[in-house]
Amino acid sequence: MSAVLEIPRETIPRPRNHYTEPHFLTVEGLPTAYRRKGTGETVVFLHGAGMTRMWLPVYDLLAQRFDVIAPEHPGFGETPLPPWLRGIDDVVLHYHEMFRLLGLSRVHLVGFSLGGWIAAEFAAFYPDLVKSLTLITPIGVRAGVSGPDLFELGPERIWTHLFNQHDKIAEFASEPNLDEISFGYGEAIAIARLAWTPRYNIQLPRRLNRVKAPALIVRAADDRLIPDAIALQYEKLLPDARSVVIPRTGHALIAEEPAATAAAIGDFIGSVRP
């Protein structure tokens, strides 16, 4: 007998740009939204603490070479917030089950920002399921320096810290209407559940030693939100890691320079022996 309860889907507002209708897969009762396109080796792209509900240009560029799956974490985008979500480990176990249901054995795992933390944790728990690991401006380990408090910055000031190319903000930022403000608050609750305090896992550094897959750290030219030192810390801690810097970018480099980002990730994944 299953103790799993179905969690109902809500009506979610659609962003102006890049919105596509997701697929849904019920994972232990949770209707999990995901978008998928392309053929080739499977790349799972874990989003950060925003820019959900969209098929981002960077996903599309990667889909020219790979089978790209972009799921939405519990409580983000069109995946409802389940009451059991209390930490990153819940998300890791959720994805383990989701990958099993999708019949994925080994994947190229890519994570951006908060998604980078989730990807790193997943790789530490399930090193055998990860063919390669790409962390883009990730969080999750301490590096002795910290950036501004994203919750203190608030929903308006955050965008100018995320982007160094301010002319690109409008393409991705949400509109200031009640539906979007309410949606954003709901997503912020999920972020807080995962990462209000602490915003790192003191157990992760040692566990990263378990990750034998090759790893790429994608860094911003000038990240004014999450210190670059955290990315460098990951590069140091992962047994087989290298890093690349995307010029002219801030924290949200996947949105600022999607072509250069997709090229760097594609070249790295392409170089990994099957």
């Binding site: 929903p155 309410s182 912020a188 609750i189 972020i191 559940r193």
Partner: peptide, 18 residues
């Protein structure tokens, strides 16, 4: 935004307040 950090209110209560 200092006043209502995430989860300090439920989403429903936040939405009705805003």
């Amino acid at each position: 935004h200092y006043h209502i950090p995430p989860g300090h209110s439920t989403k429903a209560s936040f939405t009705s307040f805003i």
